[in-house]
């Protein structure tokens, strides 16, 4: 057995080689190209471009569109995180009751997760304009009598509503699974000790849910910071650019305005922001590990 051949010795590396190659070709090379393009004035149309140093990066911070987009993206992310956690836990608690037809309710709340986001956007676009608006008019509610996503003041909330309508489904499943893993003895002990519903939630359920909360936090944050498809289908970034997320802004600059180099620079900034947030998040969530 001492005579190990070349293949015998190295064959496990083969399994690493394939995913590594794919990772390099489809991730690291484009990433490196993106960084290079961000220092150029490339339009995305022709093969020629000039290196312009850090001009793109300097321009970003005086770009009103970028600033309003970053504001929107942050608010949207906070809305998504808070909404998914609070609503997710609330719905999971309700679905954890012993009630009739609980299977039906669980299915109903999970259903939005299986619809394609773009389809969802197109459905809600019609619903807001032709379903909800006439209802608002009938009831005499002024802010509801025109499409929620067509009005600068309400577009954010309309968008967040649709994002949560779909986005809360997966967190509910995660929280529900976690709630069901809490040993019954602990609840029983608490009830013998005379704990009320709120105390049970605060001192037993919530601590048990903390790993789930940390997962949902990561997922929601990622979904919020990189939001694109729903916004693209629902509002296209309007009205007056008030719902343009950073992802959509990058797309618009690259493919609509023919400023590929500048768009790459924004994408790199977005990448750095997400990297920083992730590091902070991973470090702080270690505290909640069970």
């Amino acid at each position: 057995m001492r005579e190990k051949g070349f293949v015998n010795r190295y064959w496990p590396y083969l399994f690493i080689l394939v995913p590594l190659l794919l990772q390099i070709v489809f991730f690291f090379i484009p990433l490196a190209q993106g960084v290079i393009y961000s220092f150029t004035d490339w339009t995305g149309l022709t093969s020629s471009y000039n290196f312009i140093g850090i001009d793109n990066y300097l321009a970003i911070f005086s770009d009103a569109k970028f600033l309003s987009s970053i504001g929107f993206t942050l608010l949207f992310t906070i809305g998504l995180v808070v909404g998914q956690i609070v609503l997710g836990i609330a719905i999971a608690l309700l679905l954890n009751q012993k009630i009739k037809g609980v299977g039906l309710f669980r299915t109903a709340y999970f259903f939005p997760a299986v619809i394609s986001t773009v389809t969802l956007g197109l459905i809600f676009k019609q619903f807001f304009n032709y379903g909800l608006a006439p209802l608002g008019e009938f009831l005499g509610i002024e802010w509801l009598s025109q499409s929620l996503i067509a009005n600068e003041g309400t577009a954010f909330w309309g968008l967040l509503f649709v994002a949560l309508w779909q986005g809360v489904a997966i967190p509910v499943v995660i929280f529900l699974a976690n709630l069901q893993s809490i040993p019954n003895e602990i609840r029983e002990a608490a009830s013998i000790d005379g704990a009320n519903r709120w105390q049970t939630f605060k001192s037993i359920e919530l601590p048990f849910l903390s790993p789930a909360i940390s997962i949902v936090l990561i997922l929601a944050m990622k979904a919020g910071l990189t939001a694109f498809d729903l916004i693209y289908a629902l509002t296209g970034g309007g009205p007056s650019g008030s719902t343009t997320s950073l992802g959509l802004l990058v797309y618009n600059y690259a493919f609509k305005n023919n400023q590929f180099g500048y768009a790459s620079a924004i994408a790199i900034v977005l990448f750095i922001i997400i990297a920083i947030v992730s590091v902070i998040q991973i470090n702080s969530s270690k505290k909640f590990e069970v």
Binding site: A64, A150, G238, P239, S240, G241, K256, N257, N258, Q259
Partner: peptide
Amino acid sequence: WPSEEEFWHLTVDYMNNGDKDQLAKDLNA
């Protein structure tokens, strides 16, 4: 022009909100 889409957007934005100052600002931008 190097691109046109923002011109479309500012057009309907003005038709919707009627804000002349904003129109001038968007056109300048």
